[in-house]
Simulated assay, not measured.
Amino acid sequence: MLRSYLGFRPYCPDHLPVIGPDPRAPGLWHAAGHEGAGIGLSVGTAKVLVQTMTGEVPELDLAPFAPARFAKAS
């Protein structure tokens, strides 16, 4: 055996993580759904979240990762 994994590895239908504020719940921010890359992407995710939360322009466009992308059209 080369490797083994154990634990919860959340993912989204589009295989992109959810990063950013939830428009349905003010004050709720998401940083989840990284599949198996969560540990490797944790520092970068934290950095862009802090930038966004403090009013800075994040180094990465968070639009593709926005929680709102799963909202159903009314």
Rank of each mutant, 00 (worst) to 15 (best):
I19S: 06
L6F: 12
G20C: 03
D61E: 07
A37I: 11
R69Y: 01
W29N: 00
G7Y: 06
L16S: 04
L60P: 07
V48P: 08
A32W: 08
F8W: 15
G55D: 02
T54R: 09
G20P: 00
P10Y: 03
R69E: 00
P58E: 03
P67V: 01
I19P: 00
L49R: 04
A73D: 12
G55A: 05
V50C: 11
L16N: 01
G36E: 07
F70N: 10
L16Y: 03
Y5S: 11
D61G: 08
G44W: 04
V43N: 10
A37D: 15
K47P: 07
L28G: 05
A25H: 11
Q51M: 02
S74C: 10
G38S: 01
P13W: 10
F65N: 07
M1F: 11
A25M: 10
A46F: 00
R3L: 12
M53S: 02
P10D: 00
M1H: 11
A71L: 15
K47S: 12
P21E: 09
A46H: 04
P67R: 04
S4N: 12
D22E: 01
G44P: 02
Y11C: 14
A46C: 07
V48G: 10
F8N: 11
V50I: 15
P13Q: 13
S42H: 08
P58Y: 03
A32S: 12
K72G: 12
G20N: 05
F8H: 14
V18T: 09
L28Q: 01
E56T: 05
T52V: 08
G36I: 14
K72N: 11
V18H: 02
H30Q: 10
L62H: 02
E56Q: 13
H15L: 15
L60E: 04
V57D: 12
P64K: 04
E35I: 03
A32T: 13
P26Q: 03
H15W: 14
S74K: 14
L28P: 06
T52G: 06
F8R: 09
H30L: 05
P21M: 07
R9H: 12
G38M: 04
D22Q: 01
L62Y: 00
P67E: 05
Y5M: 14
E59W: 07
H34V: 06
L2G: 10
G40L: 15
R9Y: 14
L6D: 10
V43D: 05
F65K: 02
I39W: 12
L60I: 15
P64G: 05
